[in-house]
Simulated scan of single mutants.
Amino acid sequence: MAQRVLYFLVPGQNISPFDVTLAADAGFDQVIPLTGIQPADVTGIVQDAIFCRPPNRFNDTGIFIGGRDVHLATDMFQSARKAMVGDFQVGVFADPNGAYTTSASVVALVERALSDSTGKGLDQRSVAVFGTGPVGLCTAVLAARQGAKVRICQLTADDDQKAALRFGERYGVDLEWVSAVTLREKSSVMEATEVALCAAKAGIRILDREVLDAAASLRVAADTNAVPPSGIDGVGVNDRAVAVQLAKSEFLSIGPLAIGNLKYKTEFGLFRTLQTSSTPALLDFPDAFTFATAELAQATTSAKAA
Rank of each mutant, 00 (worst) to 15 (best):
M1P: 11
M1W: 03
A2N: 04
Y7C: 01
F8E: 09
V10E: 13
P11W: 09
G12I: 04
N14K: 14
I15W: 12
S16M: 07
T21M: 11
T21S: 15
L22K: 01
Q38C: 01
P39W: 13
P39E: 12
T43C: 01
T43N: 12
I45L: 15
I45W: 11
D48K: 07
D48H: 08
A49T: 07
I50E: 02
R53T: 14
F58N: 04
N59D: 06
D60Q: 09
D60I: 00
T61Y: 03
I63K: 10
D75F: 08
D75G: 11
M76I: 13
S79A: 14
A80H: 05
V85P: 08
D87I: 08
F88N: 15
V92R: 02
V92Y: 05
D95S: 11
Y100N: 11
A104C: 00
S105H: 02
V107E: 01
L109N: 07
E111H: 09
E111N: 15
R125C: 09
V129T: 12
V129R: 06
F130G: 08
G131K: 12
C138I: 04
V150T: 09
I152F: 10
T156A: 06
A157G: 02
D159Y: 10
L165Y: 09
F167H: 01
G168A: 13
R170E: 15
Y171P: 00
L175S: 07
E176L: 13
A180N: 04
V181G: 01
E191H: 15
A192Q: 15
T193L: 10
A196H: 03
A202K: 10
G203R: 07
I206D: 02
D208W: 07
R209N: 02
R209T: 14
V211M: 02
L212R: 14
A214K: 15
A216R: 13
S217Q: 12
A222L: 01
A222E: 00
N225G: 10
A226D: 08
P228M: 00
P229I: 01
G234I: 04
V237C: 12
N238E: 08
N238V: 09
A241H: 10
A243P: 13
V244E: 12
V244Y: 08
E250L: 01
G255F: 11
G255C: 13
P256Y: 06
L257A: 01
N261M: 08
N261T: 03
L262F: 09
L262Y: 05
K263Y: 02
F268H: 05
F268S: 11
G269I: 03
L270F: 03
Q275G: 03
Q275T: 05
A281C: 05
D284L: 07
D287C: 11
D287Q: 10
F291T: 02
E295T: 12
L296C: 00
Q298T: 14
S302C: 04
K304D: 12
A306Y: 03
A306T: 12
